[in-house]
Design a protein around this nucleic acid. Sequence first.
DNA 1: TGGAGTATAATTGTATACAATAATACATTC
DNA 2: GAATGTATTATTGTATACAATTATACTCCA
Lengths: 215, 215
Amino acid sequence: MLDHRTVSLAEKVFERLENDILTGKYPRGTVLTEMMLVSDLGVSRTPIREALSRLEQERLISTTGKGITVLGVTAKDLEDIFNIRIRIEGMVSAETAMRITDEQLAELRETLELQEFYVLKGDADRIKQMDSRFHRLIYRFSGSEVYNDALIPLHKKVKKYRKASVENSSRAEQSAREHRAIFEAIEKRDPHLAEKYTVDHIVHARDYILNRGIE
Amino acid sequence: MLDHRTVSLAEKVFERLENDILTGKYPRGTVLTEMMLVSDLGVSRTPIREALSRLEQERLISTTGKGITVLGVTAKDLEDIFNIRIRIEGMVSAETAMRITDEQLAELRETLELQEFYVLKGDADRIKQMDSRFHRLIYRFSGSEVYNDALIPLHKKVKKYRKASVENSSRAEQSAREHRAIFEAIEKRDPHLAEKYTVDHIVHARDYILNRGIE
DNA sequence: TGGAGTATAATTGTATACAATAATACATTC
DNA sequence: GAATGTATTATTGTATACAATTATACTCCA
């Protein structure tokens, strides 16, 4: 069921700018002003300022002094992000395995099956979308807003590099297999196995991304 | 050296509201409107909206529909926060132990010595302040914005409960001793010891806070 | 020529007016 | 009397005007 709620301009501006930064359209060091964004996006400064405030809180931009400087995600950021994810994402999967409902499990299964389908088709954009959704569902189904809120920003920041991963068909296949292992552990309500397979998966994702050389 | 930069109204409003929520002045469930805050704080809606936007991103309030609802920090949040801190804060201390400069070490030492002094004096407010500063310096001296940004919001949310801890003189003394152990490990540039003592400290803080019964 | 001081311009910070939306109360109908 | 539709009000969302600040360019003097 799609959510047709009207979304504010501030929200749209935020999502657009966040995406442009996370995908590298605005590379690190780019300097913007509010007025430039007013011209580019065709909305007033008010929603733009709200979006910028949120981006600053996520440390994707910096607004010290004059102008807005894009910070983006550095190679060191990526290393640190994976160091954290390796230490907590397994715990979160274990929690999800213990408390997931049948309905939630069905949603997770559908996401995994779509991922597998798109891997067969070789549709990188869709693979990426399902890959992300799989992880986010596990965060959410942990029932912990704290876990979810801690992981979402870390997960977001890998976006550009995840895209490169799924464009490699053998890595995409491996990733789908690893997701299936995680799913089956959760389906069995086995927290230890869910934790183990999740940590393995994050380690592999890290190794692939960091060894590949960034940017 | 104090920082005398002029701080925006939005920043002041944010800090004040954040503090009022974290200390329990606005308990969970409190409903506010922008206009109420305009009257109470004597500034226009613009800086108030910016502050609210940031508070919402930290999930301290919710703004769905009409009015602003205070969410605050629940007992479950606290448990989840400590589960994460136990898993990553040791790693961060280890990183700090490996890269801290002499100048940074001096700042950390001074903070610890002040904490010990205020423990002797029994000045709970100051103890709390130095306790927080000690942890935040370690986050910062890790040299990782990712580590810092992940831990700061988790650390903030324990504020109210940390206050209750330091008001117990035996826990305050124990906490200072644990900080000293962490400090000496960092001073020796011993990452393993720094990690161990940090994890022990967080575990003890958790046990004290969670067993004490929340609110 | 280098530097302090000052004028100028660009940019952000804040207040406020107006528009759109969502909630509430009320009336009307069955 | 319950339910539904409608008017009203409260509240948020957006645009814009104005104030304050900061950076830059320029001038004058040593």
